[in-house]
Design a protein around this nucleic acid. Structure first.
Length: 421
RNA sequence: GUGGAUGUGGUGAAGUGGCUAACACACCGGAUUGUGGCUCCGGCAUUCGUGGGUUCGAUCCCCAUCAUCCACCCCA
């Protein structure tokens, strides 16, 4: 069907697009205040980039990637998330040579081949930030604070920050072994997926939603218990920093997250609603070691990404109105072909002075044009017919009062400028 | 990927195996010649997501397909 868009994609029309602009503008504003600079990246990368970073056992890589071979037989993938590409660009452009930390943000479409439902699409938009070169827990706190700050400024309520520490290269292997040992005792109680996860990535069992698995998980060694001294003090310091600036959070020992690259800090901001299933508005964590994975020198990293569609959905559910569209200041209503041309010239003259001006192009009757002007909610309507043209004037009508006066065409721009002040 | 629901004009929606597919809103035009709201009048689906089938006849029955929504899964 020629008039059907691909499954899981969206057309954002006028009325909606202004909301996007508003949110994007807000994100840019907050980033500017926090010192994050925009990085603009390709929408597709070598498939390898995602295999390396996102993790071979993740669902994204296993079944959700939009991959294709280009005409040169190279394996390409439409980006399913933004971190991997940012890491690649960080190295390729040698940003590690700049003073650290490097604080970046991005926004734009991501692609995952999922079955769409409320708040989940195949092409969706994310805003995200990434910080390289800082291992201090304070930067973890900054990232979380920035995320919360954006939601706060939008006026969202009912949010909760879930936070966990998921281990590092030192403590995770040991923890994984402990988990395997533990879960093997209850293998028969686990769901099919988790039985599969048992050998491949037992950590993921911790955030399984099956009742049986949840029950078993209650007795499992948590990531916090298994944390090594470094991880432990990092986590505690992060919590102290969040307390210090009054960011409320809940520790969620089952928060593991689906991307394999996270170490230490993992967090999500969730909201109760949005269909109920798609309740995570944003999520992120630390990914020390990923830069090395890409062949660079050891360089810590942390970041998060926010789902724009979900954010819009939540705003709608909470009845939060975003400033949508402006009304024109002036509507010019010409009558007849000669007046049309004069009106066009005047329209451009007004616009060049920064006055938002609309005019008729359909040759409508004056009545219809007045109706249009009313609908536009303009402050002034300028009427130009043959009789006015002869006298070199125009009729300026103040819409609120209905008062009209004649103004010389040569004075019209000045006159309206004065009135609109 | 699995399961469930739905699909009538721009929108919200009635409707029935059979004469020209309600209604409301929106939109367009008009109500003495050049003026906004309200009111009044008129216009606006040869067609009921698409393709087949059953039938003398289907928007209403059956099958397929596509799309949307919901849940699972996963994630933003």
């Amino acid at each position: 069907m020629l008039t059907t868009r691909p499954t899981g994609t969206n057309d954002f029309l006028p009325g909606e697009s202004e909301k996007w602009q508003y949110i994007e503008q807000l994100c840019r504003q907050v980033c500017a205040e926090y010192g994050y600079k925009e990085i603009r990246l390709p929408i597709f990368e070598h498939t390898e980039v995602y295999l390396r970073s996102v993790g071979e056992t993740s669902d994204i890589v296993e079944k959700e990637m939009y991959s294709f071979e280009d005409k040169g037989f190279r394996h390409m993938t439409l980006r399913p998330e933004g971190t991997a590409g940012t890491v690649r660009a960080f190295l390729e452009n040698k940003l590690y040579a700049d003073p650290q930390p490097t604080k970046l943000y991005y926004m734009g479409p991501m692609f995952r081949y999922d079955k769409p439902q409320a708040g989940r699409y195949r092409q969706f938009n994310q805003f995200g930030i990434e910080v390289f070169g800082a291992d201090h827990a304070g930067i973890d706190a900054e990232v979380i604070t920035l995320a919360v700050e954006i939601f706060r400024r939008l006026g969202l309520t009912g949010l909760s920050v879930k936070i966990n520490t998921v281990g590092c290269a030192d403590c995770r292997p040991k923890h994984m072994e402990e988990l395997k040992t533990y879960f093997r005792q209850y293998e028969d109680k686990l769901c099919d997926t988790c039985r599969d996860r048992l050998e491949r990535n037992p950590l993921r069992i911790l955030d399984c939603k099956e009742d049986g698995c949840k029950e078993v998980c209650k007795g499992a060694p948590t990531t916090i218990e298994a944390a090594c001294d470094n991880c432990s003090s990092h986590f505690n310091k992060l919590l102290e920093y969040l307390d210090a600036v009054g960011i409320p959070y809940e520790i969620d020992t089952n928060l593991v997250r689906g991307l394999d690259y996270y170490v230490r800090t993992a967090f999500e901001v969730v909201i109760n609603s949005v269909g109920s299933a798609q309740n995570a508005l944003c999520g992120g964590g630390r990914y020390n070691g990923m830069v090395e994975q890409f062949g660079g020198d050891d360089m810590p990293g942390i970041g998060y990404a926010m789902g724009m569609e979900r954010l819009l959905l939540t705003l709608k559910e909470q009845g939060i109105e975003l400033p949508v569209s402006k009304h024109p200041d002036v509507y010019i209503a010409p009558l007849g072909e000669a007046a049309q041309k004069e009106a066009f010239v005047l329209t451009q003259a007004l616009r060049s002075k920064g006055i938002y001006t609309e005019k008729d192009y359909l040759g409508k009757s004056l009545k219809a044009q007045m109706k249009a002007a009313d609908r536009f909610q303009v402050a002034y309507t300028v009427i130009i017919g043959d009789s006015e043209l002869e006298k070199g004037i125009a009729v300026v009508r103040e819409m609120a009062t209905g008062e009209q006066h004649e103004v010389a065409l040569s004075q019209l721009v000045e006159d309206l400028e004065g009135r609109l002040k």
